[in-house]
């Protein structure tokens, strides 16, 4: 326990060290570019951006799109993944398409989406949903296909029909795999949400970061990036909490 805590402390120590190095590098003018602000200046911009509402508003715009797109993707992907996992016909129908589309880098969908849906929220949500759909569909399908047939037959002998078995046996049994896909998808959703804002429109934290750089408000740019790091960290932390609660039977 003490050993683990001291190991933790070394990791946090490294972060402190890097921050100090950043601060010193700027103050001692070791960095060539005059426009790179110090860490303290960036933190000041962060505090200012939070108190005047700029950062929370921008982050809120981004997060709401990311979460809507993500939730739509997860719901659709669980349904489609379950269908692919249970029906051979659906599997052989959709598997080639997903395998073909999956390797396309998620940001590459954005130009197409702009042509179809413009530069507003619809476009961004659509791209977020589309790109976070793939990992969840594939992991759910894999999980459903690997459900033990004895578990399914147990449902049959205890009187459950196909839908009851899907809901109470097949999907719960595939949940660990589904959650793995959902975690990957959450990262993708955040990246795509931000890149889409950098490419189109004038809202969100992605736009704020790029725009601050263009108009030489570099401390605000760093403040935006620090905000993203903190929000990303908290999102992942929340995800891990929910995941380990849902899968608590594994460690029991």
């Amino acid at each position: 326990m003490i050993r683990r805590l001291s190991l933790r402390a070394t990791g946090i120590g490294l972060i402190v060290l890097l921050v100090v190095a950043w601060e010193l590098a700027v103050r001692l003018q070791l960095v060539d570019s005059p426009s790179i602000p110090s860490f303290s200046a960036s933190v000041a911009a962060l505090v200012g951006g939070i108190t005047d509402g700029t950062l929370p508003v921008a982050m809120g715009e981004t997060l709401s799109r990311v979460l809507v797109g993500y939730v739509v993707a997860v719901v659709a992907a669980v349904v489609v993944g379950a269908l692919m996992g249970t029906s051979r016909f659906v599997y052989y129908l959709l598997e080639p398409v997903t395998e073909l589309l999956r390797p396309i880098p998620s940001a590459a969908y954005i130009p197409i989406a702009i042509l179809l849906l413009g530069v507003g929220s619809e476009m961004k949500i659509a791209v977020i949903a589309l790109t976070s759909f793939f990992p969840v569909v594939l992991s759910t399908c894999g999980g459903v296909r690997s459900v033990d047939p004895i578990l399914v037959d147990t449902g049959r002998t205890l009187g459950y029909g196909p839908l009851g078995r899907l809901r109470r046996i097949v999907l719960p049994s595939a949940l660990p795999e589904t959650l793995t896909g959902m975690r990957v998808a959450l990262g993708i959703a955040l990246i795509v949400g931000i890149v889409s804002e950098m490419l189109a429109g004038d809202t969100g934290i992605g736009y704020l970061i790029l725009e601050s750089q263009r108009i030489f408000q570099v401390p605000l740019m760093f403040a935006g990036i620090i905000t993203l790091a903190l929000v990303g960290y908290l999102l992942n932390l929340a995800f891990v909490r929910v995941e380990s609660h849902l899968l608590r039977w594994r460690t029991a």
Partner: peptide, 28 residues
């Protein structure tokens, strides 16, 4: 008519507690 499987360990729902396993057939 209820069937008890030879590989009973594989027939038990690992994500359900003991009590929730027992009542599984009644939830329907």
């Amino acid at each position: 008519v209820v069937y008890v499987f030879q590989q009973f360990a594989k027939s038990i729902f690992p994500w359900r507690t003991v009590l929730d396993n027992v009542v599984f057939g009644l939830e329907r």
